[in-house]
Nucleic acid binder design. Structure first.
Length: 512
RNA sequence: CGGGCGGUGGCGCAGUGGUAGCGCACGCGGUUUGGGACCGUGAGGUCGGGGGUUCGAAUCCCCCUCGCCCGACCA
């Protein structure tokens, strides 16, 4: 693909579109290390925006940040049976502490430096943190213990995709300790709600909330709650998880406290996380065939100004003088608690080329300033996506633009959420008949196998066997058992036995 | 980890045994500038890595590696 060409349209090949978009928007690239990515400055700025705003919420709910080691002694991982079972297949293992020159001059691990106990590069930190928590928690007065860490983790994946699944990824992982089950349960729910609100108000990504099935829950958890988003190819993306770990890790690591009535009690723990995968979700929720589309809340740049003429020093000076009152006006102006970010593109590309560049990078508002506008006290602006309203550029007074910018960004942010919600709702359907269920998930065309119905709400008996068969046959899984919805009294869509009592229709979908 | 397809300048590609090329991007000079400018002139590649066959390998053979797609696994 030459840089002059447009990217592959979504209709033609959704995967190719995704990969090319990440390249042309300059978000990330493959590294020399298989399965690992380099997050480029523009992509990292999006992650930083996510971090900042989520970190604010994590702190607002009483959590403190801390940092634990990258390396986990193998014996720690082994202490929780289900946990080690779940992660054993994808662990990077450190076996030696130094290199030496081998017979052929190549560096090899020095056999004499073999570690007495091998170290695992953390795939998640429940165990290493559990070991600390056991010492930190002594009394009921130490509870609840509410900790979060921002970190990288490694899971040795066989098949990777930029942002969606890489061997190393960045995330936050909250780890908390509570006196009893109910308090841990409240925490698990509270943080899921933080994620839901964050996804919708910051990422403009509508999500379904619910509980994972036994098959899909976190290795070592009592139960797992999740937020699930629908991508434009109608597949589900697990965008965040919150786990009630019960006493599983507390028992394994002896996280115990003396209660008010002088009894030694085993604590209850939770963990919850979201990762750089959200950036991939963001891309697949909003972007179009022209490139990235970003909600202003996470856009590294809110407004890019494209001067029509700025080749000569006197032209630049004129543009700068014209923009000065606007930039001054916007100083200190905030959107979603962060300064409004304006970039003036004085590079020597032609105006059209600048439009294409910034359009691909998803900047919400592009502003043109030309000789005509400067004469008339105006500027011309265009939104990255018009969201179905009237197309094209609008002329507005320079000062009026400054006045109205925050409202413009707010409308745009809301518009993206509404559009995504409408798309999701249009492709989420109650399906009660097995034949209809199968038809729903059967691609309409060989050429575009990814296009299928979307999310189906359907009855489920609750048996893992049914789930397994559906996955085998249609690559469809239960994404979650929604918290809301009428208890469903009909049959399991697959086996025909009665749906599990008191449970609503569950959410079935193909997933990333 | 299995199957398929790929790796030639930053990007996209041509080149099937005989002097490594093209387009875009890039540097310099100039003319331009309201949706991807044009002219002139330059720079840039031990052809993914290693081994083999050959007088000679980007090209043929073997091994490795990385990427993409499909499976199994997974945030």
């Amino acid at each position: 693909m030459s840089s002059k060409d447009a990217i592959t349209p979504r209709e033609q090949d959704y995967s190719a579109w995704y990969n090319e978009l990440i390249e042309v928007a300059d978000l990330a690239e493959h590294s020399a290390v298989r399965g690992c990515m380099v997050i480029k400055p523009y992509g990292y700025a999006i992650w930083e925006a996510i971090q900042r705003q989520l970190d604010d919420r994590i702190k607002a709910t009483g959590h403190l940040n801390a940092y634990f080691p990258l390396f986990i002694p193998k014996s720690f991982l082994q202490k929780e049976a289900a946990h080690v079972e779940g992660f054993a297949m994808e662990c990077a293992v450190v076996t030696h502490s130094r290199l030496k020159k081998g017979p052929d001059g190549q560096l090899v691990p020095d056999p004499e430096s073999a570690l007495a106990e091998e170290l695992i590069v953390r795939p998640t930190s429940e165990t290493i943190i559990g070991e600390s928590f056991a010492r930190w928690v002594q009394s009921y007065r130490d509870l609840p213990l509410l900790i979060n860490q921002w970190a990288n983790v490694v899971r040795w994946e066989m098949r990777t995709r930029l942002f969606l699944r890489t061997m190393e990824f960045l995330w936050q992982e909250g780890h908390t300790v509570h006196a009893d089950f109910d308090d841990a349960e409240a925490e698990t729910s509270r943080m899921l709600e933080v994620y839901r609100e964050f996804a919708e108000s910051v990422l403009a990504m509508p999500v379904y909330v619910g509980k994972k099935t036994e098959r899909e829950k976190f290795a070592g958890a009592e139960h797992t709650y999740c937020i699930e988003a629908m991508m434009q190819d109608r597949k589900a993306l697990q965008a965040g998880t919150s786990h009630h770990l019960g006493q599983n890790f507390a028992r394994a690591f002896k996280i115990e406290y003396l209660s008010k009535d002088q009894k030694q009690q085993t604590a209850y723990t939770t963990s919850w996380g979201v990762s750089t995968r959200l950036v991939g979700g963001l891309v697949m929720t909003h972007s179009d065939d022209k490139g990235l589309v970003l909600p202003p809340a996470v856009a590294p740049i809110h407004v890019v100004v494209i001067p029509i003429r700025c080749g000569k020093p006197e032209e630049r000076a004129e543009v700068e003088a014209y923009l000065a009152p606007l930039l001054k006006r916007l100083e200190g102006v905030q959107f979603k608690g962060r300064p409004v970010r304006v970039h003036v593109d004085m590079s020597d590309q032609r105006p059209g080329a600048k439009h294409f560049t910034w359009e691909k990078k998803g900047v919400p508002v592009r502003v043109e300033v030309g000789p005509r506008d400067m004469k008339e006290g105006n500027l011309v602006y265009a939104l990255r996506t018009t969201l179905g309203t009237e197309e094209g550029k609008k002329t507005i007074g320079r000062d009026a633009f400054g006045e109205g910018l925050v409202a413009l960004l707010e409308d745009y942010q809301r518009g993206l959420l509404e559009r995504a919600r409408a798309f999701r709702d249009a492709h989420t359907r109650d399906v009660d008949d097995k034949a209809a269920f199968e038809a729903f998930f059967t691609p309409k065309s060989e050429e575009r196998p990814e296009i299928h119905g979307g999310f189906a709400r359907a009855g489920w008996c609750g048996e893992g066997e049914c789930e397994a068969q559906v996955k085998e046959r249609h690559k469809v899984t239960v994404r979650c058992i929604p918290f809301t919805g009428e208890p469903f009294t009909g049959a399991c869509v697959w086996c025909g036995k009665p749906a599990r009592a008191g449970q609503p229709r569950v959410l079935w979908a193909k997933a990333y």
